[in-house]
Design a protein around this nucleic acid. Structure first.
Lengths: 203, 203
DNA sequence: CCTTGAATTGAACAGTTGTTCATTTAAACT
DNA sequence: AGTTTAAATGAACAACTGTTCAATTCAAGG
């Protein structure tokens, strides 16, 4: 058979993306077979090629859109460069936690499957990642320079912060005892202490 | 042909392990083909089955030995439970960095390829991982209890510390400007600040 | 020198892989 | 109603997958 009742290109593409994200997060990109992915969506394998020219492109678009979504969401959440560094850092930290918590699968992909990208596609993603990480490093450097934050090596500290924040998705479960807001608070406390930013509440 | 000149079981097994570690770290477990692995070592694919009963077992042994090596090395490096928590924490941090820095590929495997393990094998590794992480959580809890460390949520903080320390291997390059000793110092500073442990040097 | 056994092989098995293409169905437009 | 076009198909391709096994080569022990 061919075109089926009520079929719709946009809806199909969305379904493919969702299934691909879930399957790759669960079993890895290399383990993903086009037939399996198609079956998950209720299609024949050939149909996938209407939406993606090849398997690599599925991964690439998933990762690129994950990063673009991140940067687009960060833009309005960030504080201006003139704001005090500790406040900017708090905005960054809370934004990062809040944004990533409901996107565990995307986070997983974007630091587990980078190696499965072709050189070209990898570079494209890396540019976006660097922009985000650079923003944090800048905040830290500014704070260290004007004495509102205490740290050595802004770039290294930036990586450490991102690593510890991103690690949340490996253990956080929505069914667990901690609410997203709790996690946000706990991690802001950790980052604040780590950089000598003064906490609002007294210890 | 069959047995070749100067061939040696022990040496062959070592070569297989090394090649498997490198290939899996680079391309992932699922992407590893037995023929490719064998070729890397200069063997036919069938020869691998003298050393490993199947592909899964290669990954499992690699991961298990990585963890066992870690625990075995940690045992003599740790300070007694009676020692002050900040000193124990410093010992842990420095040990972790020093141990993992030259083992980037193993680290990679043991948190990227866990999902490729069968349920049974996964559980076996998880037991070892928990033992190590639990040790750190214990140090933090002890310090928080006797007032020598400052933190909320010892378990969460333990995870955060391990995440940030383990993240080092994703960016550290031996050819770069930082020596292993530099990295050790920088990260101990970070962890110390994060937990309110007093640094030996004044700021 | 002859036997034993460790080390390795090539060929075969039964699937699975990503991808292409001519063809078919059904929805949308005229 | 008829035409166009979006959506999906099944079959085929050539290559590759993990694994088994009888056969072979070589090193060591007696």
């Amino acid at each position: 058979m061919a075109r089926r009742v009520g079929s719709d290109g946009v809806r199909t593409e969305t379904a493919i993306r969702a299934a691909a994200l879930r399957l790759i997060a669960r079993h890895g990109y290399e383990a993903l077979s086009m037939r399996r992915l198609a079956a998950e969506v209720g299609l024949g394998a050939a149909a996938l090629y209407r939406y993606f020219p090849n398997k690599q492109e599925i991964l690439f678009r998933l990762l690129r859109e994950h990063m673009e979504e991140l940067l687009a969401a960060w833009e309005p959440a960030r504080l201006p460069d003139l704001a005090p560094a500790p406040a900017r850092l708090e905005a960054f930290t809370r934004f990062h936690v809040r944004h990533h918590l409901p996107r565990a699968e995307g986070v997983f992909l974007s630091y587990m499957e980078l190696r499965s990208l072709t050189r070209e596609n990898f570079d494209a993603i890396e540019v976006l990642r660097r922009r985000y990480e650079g923003d944090l490093a800048r905040i830290l450097a500014d704070g260290a320079a004007d004495g509102t934050l205490f740290l050595d090596h802004a770039r290294v500290t930036a990586r450490a912060i991102i690593a510890l924040l991103t690690g949340i998705t490996t253990w956080y479960r929505a069914q667990g005892p901690l609410s997203p807001a709790d996690v946000e608070d706990i991690y802001w406390n950790i980052v604040a202490r780590m950089t000598g930013a003064e906490l609002k509440e007294a210890a």
